[in-house]
Design a binder for these strands. Structure first.
Lengths: 336, 336
DNA sequence: CCTGGTGTTGTTAACGTTAACAACACCATA
DNA sequence: TATGGTGTTGTTAACGTTAACAACACCAGG
């Protein structure tokens, strides 16, 4: 509750001198500095970041806007971002768009009023371009994470989903699978497009015909994994392996299969993307390519700060982080 | 970049009139209101929350300070808090103390400068009392989540860990286990104390002698689950069941056991606390009591807002949310 | 003794917003 | 026609901080 003026009065100096002590700017006699510090401590003084931001036009606030905090990929990413931001004296606001364009818009509006210094965003989909253009118009630097958005250039940190998809398919095919279902994700999301593309390319490369009755759309949520299995069960042929759009769809699918009495992985191999938190360490069901989520966050902040401070390259930078192949059935790990 | 003054000029009114339109306070002629709104849109005007906060002494910012964002319990809790905060027009800042008192202190300092309206905190332990007293001294309302702190009174949302522990023990004992190990958590954390207490009481109630060689300390982290198993293996007797301090310790223990060739759950039953995200849906290894994490967050925000607005009771309120017993081995769910 | 630099401190105004009050027009009523 | 209420708008000052500049003391060098 004490202000810089209270401190100044107590230390018998002007507020400006106190400000200099706080910020380490200008020169202050050692004796005066001591008096000021003493006064600050006695009054339990904390500078007001908002007032400071008002005059400095800089809030030291970043925002990380994600599509789903409860997804382990994003929580780990968030940790990376948080650590890196704090290390550089920035605070980090979290937002959750829930894969929903409208919620994303609400957050962007809020950010414009909060006057954040920069934004890390995992876009909800291609239509997010509106929001990105809005940020750009207001001169708020941003870094795109995980999903690229056609039509906008910016700094971005992406995974290689095409390669990831191919790795999983090669693995399945190598294991002898020829009838592989693909539960693909929403096509307005770049990761889902690339993963589907990888599926088709791998089939082609291995001379396996594309069978549209094995290919089913999902929405990246657990429930759509259930539905996909129901649909699949009514079709012919029934596959021996599944490439799932993402981790949640994979879980949903496995759960539905188990309910129907299938043994996993004996009667059905399941491969998918992104890790699933601590439990996956000991899970024998899944083969997956994971992404270095922590690095997504920490490098994202790094790129963003470079842009904010004008350090680093003037060009837009795209960093592609390599997928890591993990077969939980054999505990085999390989980097690419 | 446009300010309220730019809008005022464009709409040919005073800034105050614009302010009235924005906030819906006072009276403004319909025709004027239209002109103002038009001007705001043309200029892409967004009010500056910081400037507003400065004069209103209210930031509409809350903070949720947790011990570990990557723990599914807290991410779900975070979702509950976020949804509830947004519903009431509040923004939510997230913080991660990493079970570390110093990091917690840094966050509290930061919050005092950020002038948040209120704080939700899952304390790192009993020593957090310093930080809570600091908040209180600065008149920042707070709600304690998950772990109580002896010596401080406040609004709080807690689980019933004593009951939870008993439920798990009853279950194990009912299944015929007599030699049950306890991997207990840090004793400066209330949840760990209560869980250990439940262990001892259940033994007593069932006439099973307490054997200190079956009781091992952990630090709530995955690795300490490993170490605990190593220690256990060198001791006599070897248990047939384990009560693990929390979800991560349980995973660590299971992993270590599997490496040693143990079949889970045939050769060892494992019971623990809190859910583990989507994967646990299909995990056959664990028996656990989970807590309604989403409600922790959403009710916490509710309590906090009541306190901030002065609505609700003057008395400190403690809400104890009941544990839910889940046996993933049988998919049995029971509420208590 | 003057000059000019250096070190130290203070003054003023501004950042964008809103609270409190003032002012004025308009209308109905006595 | 005077009175007073109501509806609408504007003016001033304040929130807590810092940038830009001003001011002054002190000392070395000519």
């Amino acid at each position: 509750m004490a202000t810089i003026i209270d401190v100044a009065r107590k230390a018998q100096v002007s507020p400006m001198t106190v400000s200099r002590v706080i910020n380490g700017t200008g020169t202050v006699k050692e004796e005066t500095r001591k008096r000021v510090i003493e006064a600050m401590e006695e009054l339990h003084y904390y500078p007001d970041y908002n007032a400071r931001g008002l005059v400095k036009k800089k809030t030291n606030l970043l925002c990380l806007l994600m599509t789903d905090i409860t997804n382990p990929f994003f929580t780990t990413l968030a940790r990376g971002a948080e650590d890196q931001a704090n290390r550089h004296g920035y605070r980090l606001l979290f937002g959750n768009s829930d894969e929903c364009l409208d919620k994303e818009k609400d957050y962007v509006d809020m950010l414009l009023s909060t006057k954040v210094d920069g934004v890390l965003i995992a876009p909800s989909g291609d239509d997010s371009i509106k929001h990105l253009q809005m940020l750009r118009k207001h001169n708020i630097p941003f870094v795109i994470l995980d999903r690229y958005v056609p039509g906008i250039r910016s700094d971005q940190i992406l995974g290689d989903n095409l390669l990831g998809s191919r790795l999983l398919m090669e693995h399945l095919i190598q294991q002898g699978h020829r009838s592989i279902a693909c539960l693909f994700g929403p096509q307005h999301i770049s990761t889902a497009r690339d993963r589907l593309k990888g599926y088709r390319e791998s089939l082609l490369l291995n001379g396996i015909p594309y069978d549209s009755s094995l290919v089913i759309e999902t929405d990246y949520r657990l429930e759509s994994g259930h539905f996909a299995i129901e649909t699949l069960l009514n079709r012919d042929p029934f596959p021996s392996a599944i490439l799932a759009a993402n981790n949640l769809v994979a879980i949903g699918a496995i759960q539905a299969l188990q309910r129907r009495g299938f043994n996993i992985p004996e009667q059905m191999s399941v491969a998918t993307f992104d890790d699933l938190g601590p439990l996956s360490i000991l899970h024998p069901f899944l083969t997956l390519v994971s992404q270095p989520a922590y690095d997504f966050g920490s490098m994202g902040v790094q790129l963003l700060l470079d842009r904010i401070h004008g350090t680093g390259s003037k060009e837009w930078r795209t960093i592609v982080l390599p997928p890591q192949f993990i077969d939980h059935q054999t505990s085999e790990k390989r980097g690419y």
